[in-house]
């Protein structure tokens, strides 16, 4: 089956004050695949996601989601496109005055006409899937970082979106917790077949989940390749990144 791009970014530029952060980003995100955007801190990886989500308008260039241009999209169309989005924010962005149950139930209550019983069934199902049973009545402040991420992921998945964005999903988690989150991600993607866009620093672990790896360096995408090709790439910038982040051991072979 041929791969179809659901998100296409061309010549995306964004400047803050005197600093040009994105200097012409070109990137295609394929349907049903997992694309990981890697790169150094402060390069603008999360900024790319914010442009796709329509939270920021570009200075120039185009961001198309399902063929619709996000840079000049109207409110109504933007709302329609966002119906297909799920987002796991870097700090989870849970509503701190709501319980875990209410956080996960919020999109169902606001965007559907389901009864409270139906909502309760779906939310409990997601709570079970995320392995956070017994946390229904807790508030985000009472949860550990890993649990907050899982609640955030449950909320992102609750309406079965077609595209899910993960902004640094394992930041602040220990090795065991991040492995657990990746396991949940892997299972949910197998089940729900969503397109995933992940911004991550967690190299090389994240490569195991990726169908494509894109390196953002100096405001441009240096390459968007399958992980094996990425690690073996001759591009000097990608090569340097692979050697710096994974060490020479990884630069010529796949992680086992």
């Amino acid at each position: 089956m041929s791969e179809r791009p659901v998100i296409e970014i061309n010549g995306l530029r964004k400047t803050f004050g005197a600093i040009e952060v994105l200097k012409g980003v070109d990137l295609s995100i394929m349907e049903g695949k997992t694309t990981v955007i890697v790169g150094g801190s402060g390069q603008g990886k999360s900024l790319i996601i914010k442009h796709i989500l329509g939270l920021i308008r570009p200075d120039s260039g185009s961001v198309q989601v399902y063929g619709k241009e996000m840079s000049n999209i109207g409110k109504k169309d933007l709302k329609e496109i966002r119906m297909d989005f799920g987002v796991l924010f870097q700090n989870s962005a849970l509503f701190d005055s709501m319980t875990v149950f209410d956080n996960i139930a919020l999109p169902l209550r606001e965007r559907t006409h389901m009864s409270e019983e139906e909502i309760s069934d779906i939310v409990n199902d997601k709570i079970e899937m995320m392995d956070i049973v017994g946390s229904n009545e807790k508030y985000p402040a009472q949860l550990s970082g890993g649990m907050r991420k899982r609640v955030g992921l449950a909320r992102a998945l609750v309406l079965k979106p077609r595209i899910i964005f993960f902004d640094e999903p394992t930041t602040g988690l220990d090795v065991a917790k991040s492995s657990e989150l990746y396991r949940i991600f892997f299972h949910t993607q197998q089940q729900l077949k969503y397109t995933a866009v992940i911004v991550s620093h967690d190299v090389p672990k994240i490569f195991k989940l990726a169908d494509y790896v894109a390196l953002l360096n100096n405001g441009v995408i240096q390459g968007c390749l399958p992980p094996e090709e990425f690690q073996l790439s001759d591009d000097p910038v990608i090569k340097e990144f692979v050697e710096t982040t994974m060490g020479p051991l990884y630069s010529g072979e796949m992680e086992v």
Partner: peptide, 18 residues
């Protein structure tokens, strides 16, 4: 203000909630 700074308002927008 706290909702804005902790990305809760962004989260609402991304969930297509006005």
């Amino acid at each position: 203000g706290v909702m804005r700074n902790s990305e809760q308002i962004d989260a609402l927008e991304c969930m297509a909630i006005d």
